[in-house]
């Protein structure tokens, strides 16, 4: 077999194998199961980039509350949690539930705090009675632009090279 053809086959193989994860619909940014003690909060500080869609899924063994806060409101929440009541407003609030799943999208780059509360801070929220196991998964939903560009460019490049090589080979045989 021609050396160039061999190289081409190997390149194709590498690209296809390596592109497989890029074809996935979601890319996990965070995945963890945490044993939350009674009267505690746990969660994530996440940079939410504009025009990206993030998928959040939270599962827990007992009912909990979930709050999405910006930086300022998180600081106030944290103050309240540590016994110094300060007014705060959550961008999103889910109370007394054990399964939460939703998408987050923002029009500009922002920092958001995703707080899972196993405490009695939020009014009308879940009552904390003991340890709660909570699984939190944050993923970036890959719209076509993420894998598309790189994959299309690489595949087109390889197709072009393959085409040129085949044409050259044909010309030589002629």
């Amino acid at each position: 077999m021609n050396k160039k053809i061999k190289i081409l086959i190997i390149s194709w193989f590498i690209v296809l194998i390596s592109a497989l994860p890029a074809l996935a619909l979601e890319r996990e940014l965070f995945n963890n199961t945490e044993a939350m003690p009674q009267d505690s909060y746990y969660g994530l500080r996440a940079v939410i980039e504009k025009d990206n869609t993030y998928h959040l899924k939270v599962n827990s063994t007992q009912n909990i509350d979930l709050l999405i806060l910006d930086e300022e409101n998180f600081l106030n929440y944290n103050s309240t949690f540590h016994g110094n009541p300060t007014a705060y407003t959550a961008e999103h609030l889910y109370t007394n539930t054990s399964l939460i799943e939703f998408n987050i999208t923002q029009t500009e780059d922002v920092v958001r705090y995703i707080v899972i509360e196993n405490a009695n801070i939020t009014s009308n929220g879940a009552i904390s009675t003991g340890e709660v196991n909570v699984t939190i998964v944050l993923s970036l939903v890959l719209t076509s632009k993420v894998p598309g560009y790189t994959l299309i460019i690489t595949l087109s490049g390889l197709l072009l090279v393959s085409g040129l090589l085949t044409l050259r080979k044909k010309r030589k045989t002629l």
Binding site: F30, S40, Y41, Y42, G43, R45, V47, N78
Partner: peptide, 15 residues
Amino acid sequence: QLPKVAEIASYKPPV
């Protein structure tokens, strides 16, 4: 530089 996604918890030191 702070990571894009970092854990926070009332019982853990913050990243």
